[in-house]
């Protein structure tokens, strides 16, 4: 008797329908999902803002193809943080709602360069002060030992050590880092995210 009741239950059309044609949830991403950055078609100026802000190594490269620069995302390295989309001044990349949010809230990345000299390691040879293009623009007569008469230079050798006088002149070329014989000078790029209202 109970078997019959079970059979009756299982042969009910509505049960059969829901059993064989169960509706599966659609495998779709929501519109606000921040996928891998896509190219919008704006012209890339090869400023490398995207590559400098990228926290992952090898995730983004700016490649020249047929005379046009274009960012190229490497899958498997990119973590979809969306910093490159936000940092690009030309809006070359897009991902989810990042660009809309950026325009709405006036988000921006501002950066500055900081020159740090390791006092312990610096031996005052003056290679960095002599090689620095910002220094040479201000004081063309800068000495081979990095001693300068001008007080407006970025850095100069004082009392056998290299001293940084005006950090804001640094353009981040890192020539000083290349010329330093014992790696005692470092150029650090610090980035700050600001909103229009708080500028």
């Amino acid at each position: 008797m109970s078997v019959l009741s079970y059979l009756k239950e299982f042969l009910r059309p509505s049960w059969l329908k829901s059993f064989f044609f169960a509706k599966t949830a659609p495998l779709e991403n929501p519109p606000y999902f921040r996928d891998f950055p896509q190219i919008t078609g704006n012209e890339c100026t090869n400023c490398l803002s995207c590559k400098m802000i990228c926290p992952c190594q090898g995730a983004i490269d700016v490649i020249q193809e047929n005379g046009k620069w274009m960012p190229y995302i490497t899958y498997g390295h990119c973590v979809r943080c969306g910093y490159c989309v936000e940092a690009c001044p030309e809006e070359v990349l897009t991902s989810g709602d990042i660009l809309d949010k950026k325009r709405l809230e006036g988000l921006e990345f501002i950066h500055e360069y900081k020159v740090i000299v390791d006092e312990e390691a610096c031996m005052g040879c003056g290679n960095c002060s002599t090689a620095c293009p910002a220094n040479r623009e201000i004081d063309p007569h800068i000495g081979a030992g990095g001693t300068a008469m001008s007080d407006d230079v970025l850095m100069r050798v004082e009392r056998g050590k290299n001293r940084v006088l005006h950090n804001d002149l640094c353009k981040g070329c890192k020539v000083c880092m290349d010329t330093c014989p014992n790696k005692s000078i470092h150029v650090v790029r610090t980035v700050q995210a600001v909103q229009e209202a708080y500028k």
């Binding site: 992952c56 090898g58 899958y75 498997g76 390295h77 990119c78 973590v79």
Partner: peptide, 9 residues
């Protein structure tokens, strides 16, 4: 994930 492809972070 990224790690089996590149090691990521």
């Amino acid at each position: 994930g990224n790690c089996p492809i590149s090691g990521c972070v």
